[in-house]
Amino acid sequence: MEISRRHFLKIGGICVLGLVAQPLVKAFAQSDVSKASRDPKALTGKKWGLVFDATKCKYSEGCRECILSCHRTHNVPAIDDKKEEIKWIWAEPYENAFPGQGHEYIAAEIKEKPFIVLCNHCTDPPCVRVCPTKATFKREDGIVMMDYHRCIGCRFCMAACPYGARSFNFKDPRPFIKEENKEYPTREKGVVEKCNFCVERLDAGLMPACVEACPHKALFFGDLEEPGSDVSKILRSHYTIQRKPELGTRPNVYYIIV
């Protein structure tokens, strides 16, 4: 095929125009409002945190409301096999939740006292650091979140998490969901999942499911950077501890022991 100089210049010009057009359109036609506008009711914060008050929790008397509510809300499958179970929030005895923070003469009722554990939404999360695809990432409000559609299932985050907060879908979880909540997606086999501090509820102006469900007011949620929030007030007025603070992850879940 013969190409005249004129023809060549024409095509070249169109190509250059095409390359320039897109950034130009972006620069001039982009508005300040983000594409997905936020619900005006949405709860916003600078750094979300949670406080668990063990003195009020009635887990040992059989209460499971926070766990049931969370797992129902987020379609967490009920898999009985301990090796493959999926959990976002559950209870651990003091000595397991806080290894190294007890001693041999500790009162038996503290040693065995159940503590609600979940993702700590660390300020410096190792799971985010190691994820090779940014499928686990940290939002500006401090929530460590997961993109189930990007996760390749390498499980590096599970090796990195010092709190055992992450579960892997070894098999298709759907047959193990008793009652599906259509408002929240289910997962496929082969991806990791964990607590998301109920981002979807915060966006709709609701408190996290576990906090809302607790009948004994043992869970508090709020903005740690906001001096007037419930969590800030409690942290100022009580002695609280974190799980494994020595690892430098700076967890944002706090515990009142006694």
Binding site: C131, T133, I152, C154, V191
Partner: peptide
């Protein structure tokens, strides 16, 4: 061995599509 260990092997290209220099795996 890395490939057979992945839960979602069909997404392996995400490692190149979303390169993440803070991940040692990258």
């Amino acid at each position: 061995f890395i490939f057979v260990d992945l839960g979602k092997p069909m997404r392996i290209l995400n490692m190149i599509l979303y390169p993440t220099p803070n991940s040692i795996m990258f």
